[in-house]
Simulated assay, not measured.
Amino acid sequence: MVDYSTKAPGVYIEEITPAGPIAGSGTSTPALIGTVAATVPAEKLGIPVPITNWTGYTSQFGDFAANLNLPYAVRGFFENGGGFAYVVPIKDLTGLPAALDQLTRRPDVSLVALPGVVDPAVQATVISHCEAMGDRFAILDGAPDATPLKTDGALQKQRAGLLSKNGFAGLYWPWIVIPDPQAAAGTTATLTKPPSGHIAGIMARSDNQRGVHKAPANEPVRGAIDLAYPLNNLEQDQLNTKNINALRAFPGQPPLVWGARTLTDGTPWRYVNVRRLFSYVEDSVLAGLRWAVFEPNNTGLWKGLERSITEFLTRVWQSGALFGRTAAEAFYVKIDEELNPPATRALGEVVVEIGMAPTRPAEYVVVRIGIWDGGASVNER
């Protein structure tokens, strides 16, 4: 700060750095946890390693192995449009708590998967981690099951133990059939593998092409040539009501992700894109408003916060993420004396209230069709 006591009386100009716009946070960086082919020193187990391509993975962790799931998941992530991931090697599931602890130190992680692990108790631990962090989404593999509709079957029992209060997880089923990358040339050997790594790549691809507000569904699973269980419509009717996201194979098309629900019974957080959109906005606002910490808590600060948040949410609305013909219909930002009375300000707190109207996916497209006789309406059948 300039010491004006040493200067002549007069008017002096100082340039200040205003609060910049809020930048959107990343949404498509997964942490893929599992066992690798290479021998990893004990001190490096559970440590997230940044990987940007398949070659980067093999150079550190070895190649494919039929008894492993992680390498196929990593390859599937990059095949489906992913560009950056953390690979977290563990010796076995006893190393999961330490791995999750290390992930709390990687704030850019937004997706977490444990490819091939279908134990609901273990998966619940991953969900709890995502809920505690508040900005992560767990991509879970459904249990292989030849009778997926039976209440005492592996898939239904698994789902029953995985309800997430605020929708921080999605369960995907069935497993996918992929070409065996180690098969001899000219052969058509295949492997059945869990889809979670491929789903993480699809989310990254959808985020980059359309935005996090678009449901990562009706998207092809690149690298998959078939599904371990060919669902029909009646079966998916029942699975969808249990919020199990199906992968489907329709005639003439590659396998598609055909579900976009989270593991919650509550309507507000039913859809994957709504949960992930709010996580994106929350992360972006938290990072973009750090300039305000320790500033004088007065109406000038309040106006600055309101401007920054409003400008950011206007861009979110313009991208199609929020529902409303105008920005005023799509969101509101409130910061005033009602939220910040003297008692609150005395505690060093400033409270901002934000409301958003997210767009939800058109899960059911209803077409009414009938015989038209040239009149004003059709004769429905």
Results as ranks from 00 to 15, higher is better:
M1F: 08
M1A: 15
V2Q: 13
D3C: 05
I13A: 15
I13Q: 10
A31M: 02
T39M: 07
P41S: 03
A42K: 14
I47F: 10
W54L: 09
D63S: 15
L70K: 03
V74K: 09
G76N: 06
G83C: 03
Y86P: 07
I90Y: 03
L93P: 03
G95N: 12
L96E: 03
L96K: 07
L103N: 09
D108F: 14
V112Q: 07
A113Y: 05
P115A: 05
V122Y: 02
M133Q: 10
D135F: 00
D135H: 14
R136H: 02
D145Y: 01
P148H: 02
Q158F: 03
G167R: 06
A169V: 02
G170K: 03
W173H: 13
P174Y: 04
D180T: 10
T190W: 05
P194Y: 00
H198K: 06
V212L: 06
H213R: 05
L231Q: 08
Q236C: 07
N240H: 11
F250G: 04
V257A: 04
R261D: 06
T267H: 14
T267Y: 13
V274D: 06
F278I: 11
E282F: 11
D283G: 14
P296G: 12
T299I: 00
L305C: 11
W317H: 14
S319I: 01
A328S: 14
Y332C: 11
V333W: 07
P342T: 11
A343T: 12
A343L: 13
V352E: 00
T359G: 06
A362W: 06
N379C: 01
E380S: 07
